[in-house]
Nucleic acid binder design. Structure first.
Length: 503
RNA sequence: GGCGUUAUGGUGUAACUGGUUAACACGUCGCCCUCUCAAGGCGAAGAGUCCGGGUUCGAGCCCCGGUAACGCUACCA
């Protein structure tokens, strides 16, 4: 009775799509994938592609992240028509600058009864959740504040009790929406929780900000990752609460690690900065992403005769011409670095000798990189000819220290690997400057009673593959955060595999 | 646990809207070329399409029932 299906936007509306990355770290390969599909779809339909920065989570906010996202997307050739840096008619495009908009919209919902204030504390909610879990019930908001009287609310408000605003999800019925790739999907309202819309810090959650912005920015098609399917009914309900038409939804399959789990940095380099610095060409990365999900039409018999390999090699322009978004495969594709490397080698080989040389000079042999490195080794070198011996690890991708090199004399393998894991976790969250790295590492060492020598030596071995190297912290900084962390993760993964093999 | 999604060689994708021995690329292995390694050429192994039923002359494609993987289950996105 309470069930509802939403109308799709008018077919005549000009196509507008967006990507909405969060500036919480390095730009992610998944963002590039979703960005690519959105970009193609917009270009194919003569529509607009909007970049919106979803920086409402101040706990995870990383100041340098936004610029890195811009740079990475531009590097890949995915340019946007509207965004924080280029402006546009529906700005601002940074959610932190739109808090007033969310507040007034939340008030609208409060006024029409589709949302309510919740004064529950984190502790209360945690306790309730635990109880439900213990009773084998799905953890749900107990609706304690859903039916507070006006007087109670007023009293809490005048007591200055902190509160959040929650969505009042109908208790009965269900919501059905259409996924353009999968067809209708239905969720019973009994399975949809009273989602928080406004946090107690005055910032909106994704769900509110997203719906409000997509509407205000006239987004016609929401093309996003599959992980959002479960929260789509909340979004649909929000559109209805506001009395708005909902956009079309396209949920793309999730990129996977080799073990099929959602792609993650532990098991795969996911930072676009890494790919750039490790010497992947943007054309190859884009091409590879275009292979994921199979949106490109299969090669014609003629193409197969002429060398089927070429059928897998295509440019962004060709994708705009031929890619078929509705034909996307739904199984989560494995992001297979081996094939990416092959693709990259094809692109590298296709370069003119001059262009290839230029590519080298622009990246791995840039003046800046060489200058930074030379600074580190000038006092350690006897002849210029030794440059390669001293700096080889800066130019290699396969550095892997032997146990003899990385294992401190008085430490077991287990504690060493455990400590290296601690180092990794720490460095992930540390600014990439010597000033930040030094105290952070030393503090970690003290906390685990690892001497500075053991501590730094282990990291040196992982980074350089040797017990001798230019100064560690400076080397890390020069080598870059993305590649350094990747080297550490690969070291740990390799050691883990070796340990398993020994068992 | 609940809800949802997905399922073709090791990996990415094909297979005319059910029609012969399931195709292409990467990877692997072998041979040729070659001062080496790549590249290139030639060739091989590798799936009977998650499992079990059903419909049909005929099913990877349709129907039913399972299973597994993945996602969500936050005042993160």
């Amino acid at each position: 009775m309470n069930s509802s299906t939403i109308p799709a936007p008018a077919a005549s509306a000009p196509i507008r799509v967006r990507i909405a990355p969060s500036p919480t770290g390095d730009p992610h390969v998944g963002t590039a994938y979703i960005g690519l599909i959105n970009f193609i779809y917009a270009r194919q339909n003569g529509g607009q592609f909007v970049l919106r920065i979803e920086d409402t989570d101040r706990a995870r906010f990383v100041a340098t992240s936004e610029q890195m996202i811009f740079d990475a997307l531009r590097w890949l050739g995915l340019s946007w028509d509207e965004g924080p840096d280029v402006g546009g008619p529906y700005g601002p495009y940074r959610q932190s600058e739109r808090t007033e908009i969310y507040r007034t919209h939340a008030d609208l919902l409060l006024a029409n009864g589709t949302a309510y204030r919740c004064f529950c504390t984190a502790e209360e909610l945690e306790a309730a959740r635990k109880q439900q879990m213990a009773a084998k019930l799905p953890p749900r908001y107990p609706a304690s504040c859903r039916n507070l009287s006006e007087a109670q609310v007023a009293a809490n408000l005048s007591d200055n009790k902190p509160f959040v605003i929650r969505m009042a999800v109908p208790t009965e019925g269900s919501t059905t929406f259409r996924d353009e790739l999968r067809g209708d999907i239905t969720f019973e309202h009994s399975n949809v929780d009273d989602q928080v819309l406004m946090k107690s810090d005055g910032f909106p959650t994704y769900h509110l900000a997203n719906v409000v912005d997509d509407h205000l920015m006239h987004i016609t098609d929401v093309i996003r990752a599959e992980e959002w399917i479960s929260s789509t009914p909340k979004h649909v309900l929000l559109y209805q609460a506001f009395g708005w038409a909902a956009p079309r939804f396209w949920h793309m399959p999730l990129l996977r690690n080799i073990d099929k789990s959602k792609i993650s940095k532990r098991k795969n380099p996911v930072s676009l900065v890494y790919y750039r610095q490790a010497g992947f060409l943007p054309e190859a990365v884009i091409n590879f992403l275009g292979l994921m999900g199979g949106g490109m039409p299969s090669p014609t018999p003629v193409e197969i005769v002429n060398g089927a390999k070429e059928a897998e090699i295509f440019s962004l322009a060709e994708m705009i011409q031929r890619f078929e978004v509705p034909n996307i495969r739904l199984g989560g594709p494995v992001f297979d670095l081996t094939k990416l490397r092959w693709l990259n080698s094809e692109y590298l080989r296709a370069l003119s000798p001059e262009a290839f040389f230029t590519a080298l000079r622009d990246t791995i042999l840039s003046d800046q990189y060489l200058r930074d490195i030379s600074t580190l080794i000038q006092t350690r070198i006897e002849t210029l000819g030794q440059f390669g011996e001293l700096t080889g690890f800066f130019f290699r991708d396969d550095v892997m220290p032997t146990q003899e090199v990385f294992l401190p004399k008085k430490r077991t393998l287990e504690e060493t690997l455990a400590f290296a894991t601690e180092q990794l976790t720490l460095l992930e969250a540390t600014d990439w400057t010597t000033e930040a790295l030094e105290p952070a590492l030393k503090q970690l060492g003290e906390a685990h009673t690892w001497s500075v020598k053991e501590n730094f030596m282990l990291l040196r071995a992982i980074l350089s593959g040797s017990t001798m190297s230019p100064p560690l912290l400076e080397s890390l900084v020069v080598f870059g955060k993305a590649r350094s962390l990747d080297r550490m993760r690969r070291f740990l993964e390799t050691q883990k595999k070796l340990a398993n093999a020994r068992k």
